[in-house]
Every structure is written in C-alpha cells, then in structure tokens.
Design a protein around this nucleic acid. Structure first.
Lengths: 149, 149
DNA sequence: TTAACTGCAAAACATTTGCACAACC
DNA sequence: GGTTGTGCAAATGTTTTGCAGTTAA
C-alpha cells in the first residue's frame, strides 16, 4: 500500500516550476504510471484510463508522456518491441524481460551498482547511466511451456 | 582486417539446414551487418545496399532481417528509438549508447559476465541473457558540447 | 521444375502535428 | 484574459502483407 504522496508532490512542483498546468489528464496519467508495475505503453495507458475518462484521446497520452519524459518525470524503457514503454520509477533498478509474454519486471542489484566500469570505457565517453537487462522466461511461461511443449 | 569467413560459412550452412535459398540479397545484407559496427536500422542497411543493388527494396530488407532473427543469425538491439537496429555479432558483449548522436558502441566486460545474479531472480524466472546497457555522451559529443554550450 | 524469394503496391501499426475549442492560472 | 492544453482529424514514419513475376536449387 504505497500512496506515492511524495512523488505526486514532486510532480506538481515540477509542473509549476516549468509553467505547465496541472490538468486532470496529466495527473491521472502520472498516477497510473506510479501505480503500475507493468511499464505500460501509451496505448495500454490509454485503454486503462479511457474507462474512467471517456473523452481522453490517445494523442494526449502520447503528448503527455513526451512532456513527462522531458521533465524527467518518466523514463522510456529500452525494449526490442515496436511500442515504447514507460515507467515513473526513480530509484536505481534493472529489468528482467520475459521473451514469452513480454512482461517486464524490475529488480535491484546493489552489488552491481557499486561496481566500477571497465577502463576501456573512459576512451568511449562519459557514462550517465548503467543498467542491466535480462532476457528469459518468467515463472508462468516456464510452467505453460512444461504443460504444452 | 577481418573477412568473417567462418560466419559466412555458418550463415550458408544455417540457410541450407532450414531449406532457405542463399540469395544475393540475403548474402549482401548479412555481409554488411558483419562489416558494420553501427548496429544499423533496416533503413540504413537499405540505403547502404541500394547503391550497389538498385533494384533492392526496403521490404526485402525487413523480411530478410526477420528471417535472420528467427534463425539466430542476427539480433535486434534494445533501444529507446523508433527504428529497430540490428547486429550480427555473436560473442557476449554489451552496449554503450550515446544520447547525443544516437551512436551505439560495443564493449566487453568479462568480470561482469562472470558474476552471478541476485538470488531473488530465481523466483522471477529463468534467465537466458544478461546484458549491460550504458547511456551517456561519446567523446565527439562531449567535445562539441564544450565548444558550443 | 518447383518451391521459395523478391519487388511492387497497398495495408497496418505507432506516433506526431495543425487547428479550434476548452481549461487552468 | 490570456496562455497553455486537449480532442479531433489528418499526416508522418516504421514495419508488415498479398500478389504476380523471378530465381536458386
């Protein structure tokens, strides 16, 4: 049970600081992103939200996500899929991607975070972010594979 | 000077094993992917190849890449961009992504490869691949930023 | 010869943009 | 009140597909 009060406050402050209006749509989109562990696509967010806000349009979701990304309120997740996916999480974490169902799960790995990078990278450039991406099969997909091979 | 003779042989063998024809288009597309360090998109490959093969079509490039991916001859690279990018490399390696110019560089990190994963992941599922993705600015972008801030 | 492949054109899918009305400050 | 945001519709960009002629085996 996490109500994300702090993040909502930070969101409102960030909007004000940039002269952006705190609209119902923006609040709701940010709210769903905070609640969700699913790293939803723009379309998934739209489908979720349009049930409560029937006049919402998909392009508003796209525009809002682009705005949030610029403000650093959400991040676009690296994927090999055709649809972009987003998350509102701020803490350092990593991703496990299930190749069976497309599910994306977060995990933390403090001992990796503490590791230094290989020296050869100094020549390549300056690193701002360092993340691990795992691919494999989640529990559910492993089970259904066993049942119907 | 690497002529990738072995990989070409493996490519031809894989095609034969699956009853696929070794066409000029497939050979050339695979060849450019082997040579390239740029992780090109379908469009980039097309632009490169159409100069020597004026009748080549973009959809053939897409179809060929999809086929190669199924055969495990090429991999789709994880990105946040709108175009998919591909690589033919087989050895274990990782990616540095320049947020300035979109360039993608490979690097190796044997001590990371040797590391075990956090235990909590056993519950999540079975891991097949484990990669690091770095984001930052490459040398060139750092320099041009310094010159025109 | 014959099954597989390519190029063309058109469709499908994901995302962005121009404009007029609506909502926030 | 004035600026910013939204919804609509249409445009753009990326990838996929159906079909008929072409090519490798």
């Amino acid at each position: 049970m996490n109500d994300h009060r702090e993040q909502i406050a930070h969101f409102e402050e960030t909007c004000r600081a940039h002269g952006l209006k705190i609209t119902h749509q923006r609040l709701q989109i940010y709210h769903v992103l905070l609640q969700s562990a699913e790293h939803p696509s723009a379309e998934a967010l739209y489908k979720e939200l349009v049930r409560k806000m029937p006049t919402l349009s998909l392009d508003t979701v796209y525009r809002t996500l682009a705005t949030f990304e610029e403000l650093g309120l959400v991040k676009r997740v690296e994927t090999i899929g055709s649809q972009a996916r987003f998350e509102a999480k701020i803490e350092q974490h990593h991703h496990f991607f299930c190749d069976g169902c497309g599910q994306l799960k977060d995990f933390i790995w403090p001992s990796f975070d503490a590791m230094g990078l290989p020296e050869e990278l100094q020549e390549v450039g300056q690193v701002r972010e360092k993340n691990v991406v795992l691919h494999g099969l989640c529990r559910q997909c492993l089970n259904s594979e066993r049942n119907s091979p």
